[in-house]
C-alpha cells in the first residue's frame, strides 16, 4: 500500500489522501455516466447523444422533454443515489460485523424496511409517511436480528441465518399487505417485493439524495474510528475510541440509509453486499472506504438497471432480478472463499 500523500491547506487543515481510491472513484463515476448516457439514448423513445444537449437546453420536442425530465432522468438519479445509499450502508454493516456477509440485504434489513414501507403505504395508510414506515420496519428488523442471534453483532454467521428468517417473515408480511391492497396500489407496491426503479418521480430523487447528503458525511467521520474498531475492541479502547458508541452510530447510519434507499427502490438485493467489496478490492484498502463504496454502488445499480431494461429485447425486468442473479453468484463465491480460508 502506498503511503498516503498529504494535502495541506494552510497550517491547520491537513487532508491525507491516497491516489488509488481517487482513481477508483473517478473510474466508477465514468462507468456510471456512460451507462446513464446509453440508457438515455436506448430504446424507441431514446434521445440520441447528438440531440441530448439541445433537449437539455430546452429546444427538444415535447416528447423528448417528457422522456428526459419526467421518465428517464428521475429513474437514473434514483438508481445512482439508491445504489450509493445501499453501498454505504453495506460498507458500514460489513465493518461493524467484520464480515462481508453482514450486509443489510443478507441480514434481512432491506426486507424489513420493505415490510415497514408496505405497512405504512397499504395496511395503515396515512398513519405515518412511507419513509418513516420503512425506517420503523428496518429498525424492527435489525432489532430482531440483534436479539435473535443471541450474540449481538459478534457472530456474523448467526446474524445471517437469523436474518434469513427475519427476511422471510418480512417478505411474507409484504405479501399480506399486497393481498389486502386494491389492485392499483398493489401494482405500484409490488416493487417492494423485488426492488424496481420503474416510474420514479423527482420526489423520490429528493428523498434519497437528501438522505445521502446528511448521512454520507457522518459515515465519513465514522470511517477512521470504525477502522480501529475493526481491529478489535481492545485496540480501539487503547487508542481512545469507544467501540460501543462507534458501533451504535454506525448501525444508526446504516439503518437510515437502507430505509431511505428501500423507500424509493424496494429491497434491491445484493448491491449492499457487492459494491463495498468491489470498492475494497479495487482500492486495495483495508478499511471501509465510504466514498469509493458509494461510487461503486451507484455504478453497479445504474448498470444493472440498464441491463434489466435492455438486455433482453422486448422485456423489461425489475432491476432486482438482475442484482439477485449476479449477487447470488457473488455470494456463493464469497462463501467458498471464506470456507477455504477459515478452519472448519
Amino acid at each position: 500500500m502506498s503511503a498516503p500523500a498529504v494535502l495541506s491547506l494552510g497550517p491547520s487543515v491537513v487532508v491525507r489522501w491516497r491516489g488509488r481510491p481517487v482513481v477508483v472513484c473517478v473510474a466508477a463515476l465514468v462507468v456510471m455516466l456512460v451507462a446513464m448516457l446509453v440508457t438515455l439514448s436506448a430504446g424507441r423513445l431514446g434521445i440520441s447523444l447528438a440531440e441530448l444537449p439541445g433537449v437539455v437546453a430546452g429546444s427538444g420536442s415535447r416528447a423528448q422533454e417528457w422522456v428526459l425530465w419526467t421518465s428517464r432522468l428521475p429513474r437514473l438519479l434514483v438508481g445512482a443515489a439508491a445504489g450509493a445509499a445501499f453501498a454505504v450502508s453495506g460498507a458500514v454493516f460489513q465493518s461493524v460485523t467484520r464480515n462481508p456477509l453482514g450486509s443489510p440485504d443478507v441480514i434481512g434489513l432491506g426486507a424489513g424496511a420493505a415490510a415497514g414501507a408496505a405497512a405504512a403505504g397499504l395496511v395503515w395508510p396515512g398513519v405515518v409517511p412511507v419513509p418513516v414506515g420503512a425506517l420503523i420496519g428496518a429498525g424492527i428488523a435489525i432489532g430482531a436480528v440483534y436479539l435473535g442471534s443471541g450474540a449481538g453483532f459478534r457472530a456474523p454467521l448467526r446474524m445471517v441465518v437469523v436474518g434469513i428468517a427475519v427476511g422471510a417473515m418480512s417478505l411474507a408480511f409484504v405479501q399480506l399487505a399486497l393481498a389486502r391492497a386494491t389492485r392499483e396500489d398493489a401494482q405500484v407496491l409490488a416493487a417492494y417485493l423485488n426492488g424496481s426503479l420503474a416510474a420514479r418521480a423527482w420526489s423520490d430523487v429528493l428523498l434519497v439524495v437528501a438522505a445521502l447528503v446528511v448521512l454520507l458525511p457522518v459515515a465519513l467521520v465514522l470511517t477512521r474510528p470504525m477502522q480501529l474498531v475493526e481491529m478489535g475492541d481492545e485496540v480501539a479502547v487503547a487508542v481512545g475510541v469507544r467501540a460501543d458508541r462507534v458501533r451504535t452510530w454506525a448501525v444508526v447510519v446504516g439503518v437510515l440509509l437502507t430505509a431511505a434507499a428501500v423507500t424509493v427502490s424496494g429491497p434491491i438485493a445484493f448491491v449492499a453486499l457487492t459494491a463495498p467489496q468491489i470498492a475494497r478490492r479495487l482500492t486495495r484498502s483495508t478499511g471501509p472506504g465510504m466514498v469509493a463504496a458509494a461510487c461503486c454502488g451507484a455504478a453497479v445499480l445504474v448498470v444493472a438497471d440498464l441491463v434489466a431494461q435492455y438486455a433482453v429485447p422486448g422485456v423489461v425486468y425489475p432491476v432486482g432480478v438482475v442484482t439477485a442473479a449476479l449477487g447470488g453468484v457473488y455470494l456463493a463465491f464469497l462463501l467458498v472463499r471464506e470456507w477455504r480460508r477459515s478452519p472448519a
Binding site: 443478507v106 445471517v160 462463501l335
Partner: peptide, 9 residues
Amino acid sequence: LAGAAVSAV
C-alpha cells in the same frame, strides 16, 4: 448460506 445463494440465483 449456500442455499440462500443458490436460491437467489
